[in-house]
């Protein structure tokens, strides 16, 4: 191997810019991000082909069944997960809990999810995400909510769905809603956008940008209730850039195989023969709860605004 001489006409470098923050989400497109609570699960997820893992204290199904306040994970667990895998590690902070976010940034996570799955720490304000060098992903149930999060500095959006249920209907509702609201903006004339911004409760400049480009300025994943390869493929066909799978993997009978199957179905989302093939013999899916049976005050997707 030969060595090479060093040039030096290069310019200055910049960290933590929007381009760099949004760019990581771009690189995850078409992939599956899996919830994990410890290093062993993280290794299974990486081995199955996850593009990133999401560290949290308990998976949503357990938060739902055990109740109590759900918080950021123990730093030891996050360190363990970062040490166990080479793919990006995301971790959840409570809505509005900017100190949990500061801690996660110091721990070196690659993305922070300001998540309604944990108990909110502030019922008025979300975290001012511009202050951080680490990028944030936030949940949204509609376009207005997505744009408010982007205005606060979110570099990636995921539709919320109803986490911990295994019922994909809310995820379907949210991704359809966001997509149809974007399409509606694209068809409006310029003078209609002022009222549209008012009705969406979103910044006018962002509304104009969406109307012009016909797409969000950040990557849009979907989450909440995805439990099978077919669920994941459906989210992709509805226009998601990728999929988060929470309880669906590690609350099922055979996590490693189900995780790998969901990855393949997400890649070949438009090929039913592949989705059929990978869906065979996966054993029990997570048991699941119908969202209609969850009383409204216990619906996680209604947290955040």
């Amino acid at each position: 191997m030969s060595t090479v001489e060093t040039p030096s006409q290069n310019g200055r470098s910049e960290h933590g810019s929007s381009r760099v923050k949004r760019g990581l989400a771009e690189m995850l497109k078409g992939g599956v991000i899996m919830d994990v609570v410890n290093a062993e699960q993280a290794r299974i997820a990486e081995e199955a082909g996850a593009v990133a893992v999401m560290a949290l204290e308990r998976v949503p199904a357990d938060i739902r069944s055990q109740g109590g306040v759900a918080r950021m994970s123990d730093p030891d667990l996050i360190d363990g997960i970062i040490g166990a895998v080479s793919i990006p590690v995301m971790a959840k902070a409570r809505i509005g809990h900017f100190v949990e976010a500061q801690v996660l940034q110091v721990l070196g996570v690659d993305y922070i999810d300001e998540s309604e799955v944990l108990s909110p720490a502030d019922y008025v304000n979300h975290i001012d995400k511009w202050k951080f060098q680490v990028p944030f992903v936030c949940g949204a149930t509609n376009l207005g909510e997505a744009l408010r999060r982007i205005n606060e500095g979110a570099a990636m959006i995921r539709s919320k769905g109803e986490a911990g249920t295994g019922d994909v209907s809310e995820a379907t509702k949210h991704i359809r809603k966001i997509k149809s609201e974007i399409a509606a903006l694209s068809s409006m004339s310029k003078d209609e956008l002022y009222v549209a911004a008012k009705e969406l409760q979103a910044p006018y400049d962002l509304v104009v940008e969406i109307a012009e480009t016909g797409t969000l300025p950040v990557v849009l994943f979907t989450a909440g209730g995805v439990a099978t390869p077919a669920d994941a493929a459906m989210m992709m066909q509805l226009g998601a850039d990728g999929v988060f799978v929470g309880s669906g993997v590690f609350k099922s009978g055979n996590p490693a195989e189900r995780a790998a199957a969901i990855v393949k179905a997400t890649t070949f989302y438009d090929d039913p023969s592949v989705v059929a093939e990978v869906s065979r013999g996966l054993g029990e899916a997570m048991v699941g709860i119908n969202v209609a049976d969850v009383p409204a005050p216990h619906r996680l997707s209604e947290r955040g605004w």
Partner: peptide, 28 residues
């Protein structure tokens, strides 16, 4: 380079592509 907070953008001199530097984004 490390974790995402170590990701960055910079201008690189690449003589093969001309005198103007190339703006390059490094993500993990």
């Amino acid at each position: 380079f490390g974790n995402q907070i170590d990701s960055f953008e910079t201008d690189l001199a690449i003589p093969e592509l001309g005198d103007a530097t190339v703006h390059a984004v490094f993500i993990r």
